[in-house]
Structure formats: C-alpha cells, structure tokens
C-alpha cells in the first residue's frame, strides 16, 4: 500500500466519511474510492454494492481478482437532552457498542454527577452540532420535549440523513412538532422518517424501559436499513 494513500484513507476515516480501498491483488495496483466518486463499468457497480452493504469482499473485475475493503464510519448516537431516560440510554448504548454523545444546554441537567463517563456537551445543539456535525452513520434521539432545544437538531438530522431520527413526546406534542417542521419547509416524507412516539412499542413505562425501547429501535434501523461499520 502506498503511504500517501494510507494517510488519505486514515484522514477520510477520521472525518467519518465512507471510503473503499480497491486492490488488484494479482498486480498490486490500488486506488481509493469515495462515495461521491462516479466510476463506470464493473468496478462502478461493485463499489456501489459495497458501499450499500458495508461488506468487504473479493470480486472479479475484467477477469482480475480485486479486493474491495469497505471502511464505514462507526455508528454513533447523539442524544438531545440530559434527562432521566438519557441517564439509562447512554450506558446501555455504550454496552451495545455505540459511540454516544449527550447534548443539553441546561446546566442543571448536564452535570458530570448525573452523567459520569459519558461524552456530555453542555451547549445549545446548534453550537454542539457545528463542532461535530451529524451524518448518515449517526442516530439522533431528541428527548427534551422542548421545541427550543429539540427542533433544530431534528431538522439537522433530516438534512444529514441520519440513519435514525426519533423524538420523544405524546401524539399531541408530535402533531405540533410536525406543524412546525412543515412550516420550516420539511417534506412529508422527511418528517415521516421521525420515529414518534420514540422507541419500539414494547409497552415501556419507566425511563430505563423507554431507553431499551429507543435502543432497540435504533438497532433495528441500523441492521435492517443501513449498514454501518462494526
């Protein structure tokens, strides 16, 4: 492998962009392919398939053995609201293998004491998401019920095509949320991507049970719809 190519590969991975390293194993030639690259022919078809499945594999391109190594960003969960449910959701999600970040501008909620060992950001979501933007390999769970805090990240999650978007709140709360999102120019299909009421319907009652329902919902979205790195 060429060293400059490795540096580029590592930089793309660090920036959370999907990338494929293509190696012709018989004659040791190689290239990097990014998702936006337009490649024609057999190789083009193979890389599109590999980006979609997230699976690395050996393929035949024009009769030559070619290895496609797919690097997808690891899945992460951004939780809006350092609330009671988040206190259960953050450690559970970590156990299940996700990177987790909790964002809440309210200092009384976002405390170290309530969220030991959790990546906690006590900033408004617009500031926090500017530093570390959402992407297609991120799930967003908006849990504050407060439009001032939840609405911006929900719109940002739609724009970033997060693999999962969920919002806590009763049907009534969600109906007014939908009206605000329509007002903000979001389409019906985009708004329809929001899981609300949030979580799989398992009759969850306590904050911890709701956290289980949300995590299960996220895992379902991850495994059944969109591939992300292990």
């Amino acid at each position: 492998m060429d060293f400059q190519l490795l540096q580029k590969l590592n930089a793309e991975r660090a920036a959370r962009r999907a990338v494929i390293h293509v190696t012709g194993v018989d004659d040791d030639d190689e290239q990097l392919v990014l998702e936006q690259d337009q490649i024609s022919g057999e190789l083009g078809e193979a890389v599109v398939k590999a980006f979609n499945s997230g699976k690395s594999s050996m393929v035949e391109i024009a009769g030559r053995k070619t290895f496609l190594n797919v690097y997808l960003p690891p899945a992460r969960i951004v939780v809006i609201g350092a609330v009671h449910i988040s206190q259960a959701l953050a450690p559970m999600a970590k156990l299940a293998g996700f990177d987790v970040r909790v964002i809440d501008p309210r200092g009384a909620f976002a405390t170290e004491a309530r969220f030991a060992d959790v990546d906690l950001v006590a900033e408004w979501p617009d500031e926090a998401l500017e530093t570390s933007p959402l992407d297609a390999y991120t799930a967003l769970a908006a849990l504050t019920h407060d439009p001032k805090i939840d609405d911006f990240p929900l719109q940002a999650a739609i724009d970033a095509q997060c693999f999962y978007i969920g919002a806590l709140g009763s049907r009534k709360t969600h109906a007014s949320r939908v009206a605000r999102l329509v007002e903000a120019g979001k389409s019906e299909a985009e708004i329809g991507r929001i899981s609300a009421p949030i979580g799989l319907d398992i009759g969850a009652a306590s904050p911890s049970e709701i956290a289980v329902a949300i995590l299960a919902d996220i895992i379902q979205a991850l495994r059944k719809r969109k591939a992300v790195a292990q």
């Binding site: 490795l6 590969l9 590592n10 660090a14 690891p74 293998g97 996700f98 990177d99 790195a229």
Partner: peptide, 14 residues
C-alpha cells in the same frame, strides 16, 4: 466499534 483515533486502530498505527 473503535474510534479511528483509537490507539488500537491498526491503520493509524501503521
């Protein structure tokens, strides 16, 4: 699900 900055990440180490 290791971060790419992770000290254990083989390609970063390479």
């Amino acid at each position: 699900m290791s971060d790419v900055e992770d000290i254990q990440d083989p390609l970063s180490i390479a």
